[in-house]
């Protein structure tokens, strides 16, 4: 049981955000809302940095997927460049699903989900806290995988535009994934439930992210890429808004 770090939960964020604190307090209810979001985010990060089990699992899994694709698709140099964006996103999506599943399954198994629901904060703050945590973990995994990917596939992966697509794509995926994971966790076969629920719904993210990053890797003009950027941005906004409104009904007892 990881119930011991309870007293730590309140102290680290205050220490970490000490300079912002007076300004936040002056801003009223909105600031206290974001403080509770940050507290939940901080709780997830603190728990993860102590155990490191989620990120290490996601990382090893991602590496395996990258390597297995090389054999599965019999890649030569040209083919490797053509499918790089696809492999990158399949990796991100699969490892992201692992992370999403664990992040809510842990809360449920330890009974800490009930504890969170009993806290006097807005339910949507829970959603944003969990969502930001999941997004953050996906970004960390990407931050490590991208350089590795760049070396293994000999491609310029660390261009700013590609990073924009990574940030937006993972945001959308974590945004709708957190909502669906919080539903899947209640179902009987929850570990297989999440990918089945999530993958078809998140297809637009995958399409736009693959097309966008593929375009960046092929050094296409912005005119050709901007459409995918717009699709991703629209998807992110719509789905986070929907999840924000629907989350109340998911956790309602």
């Amino acid at each position: 049981m990881n119930s011991t770090p309870a007293p730590d939960l309140s102290s680290p964020p205050e220490a970490a955000h000490a300079p912002e604190q007076p300004a936040l307090a002056a801003a009223g209810p909105l600031a206290s809302y974001w403080r509770s979001v940050l507290a939940i985010l901080w709780k997830d990060l603190a728990a993860e940095f102590r155990s490191k089990e989620l990120i290490s699992a996601m990382l090893v899994f991602s590496l395996l997927v990258v390597l297995i694709f090389n054999f599965a698709l019999q890649l030569d140099r040209v083919a490797r460049e053509n499918v790089a964006a696809g492999v990158l996103w399949v990796t991100a999506v699969f490892s992201g699903t692992l992370g999403l599943n664990r992040s809510l399954a842990l809360e449920k198994d330890r009974g800490s989900l009930d504890g969170l629901l009993l806290t006097p904060v807005d339910r949507s703050a829970l959603y944003f806290g969990k969502m930001l945590g999941n997004w953050f973990f996906m970004l960390i995994v990407q931050a490590i995988i991208l350089p590795v990917f760049a070396v293994l596939y000999n491609l310029p992966m660390l261009t700013p535009l590609l990073l924009v697509f990574v940030v937006l794509g993972t945001l959308g995926y974590a945004g709708v994934g957190t909502l669906l994971a919080s539903m899947a966790v209640h179902s009987r076969s929850r570990d297989v439930m999440l990918p089945i629920l999530l993958l078809p719904v998140a297809l637009p993210v995958l399409v736009a992210a693959v097309q966008g990053s593929g375009g960046v890797l092929e050094k296409r003009a912005w005119d050709e890429i901007s459409l995918w950027f717009n699709v991703l941005a629209v998807y992110d906004v719509i789905f986070i808004a929907v999840a924000y409104m629907a989350f109340d009904y998911v956790v309602e007892e």
């Binding site: 709708v176 909502l179 669906l180 539903m183 209640h186 629920l197 078809p200 719904v201 998140a202 297809l203 637009p204 399409v207 736009a208 995918w228 699709v231 629209v234 998807y235 719509i238 789905f239 929907v242 999840a243 629907a246 009904y249 998911v250 309602e252």
Partner: peptide, 24 residues
């Protein structure tokens, strides 16, 4: 819970469909 989750998934799923149609 089944009714609530099904309602939410029916909403989220249907919103995804036009985005997919548009994006392709």
């Amino acid at each position: 819970r089944r009714a609530r989750f099904a309602a939410i998934y029916g909403i989220v799923g249907f919103i995804s469909v036009p985005i997919t149609f548009f994006s392709i």
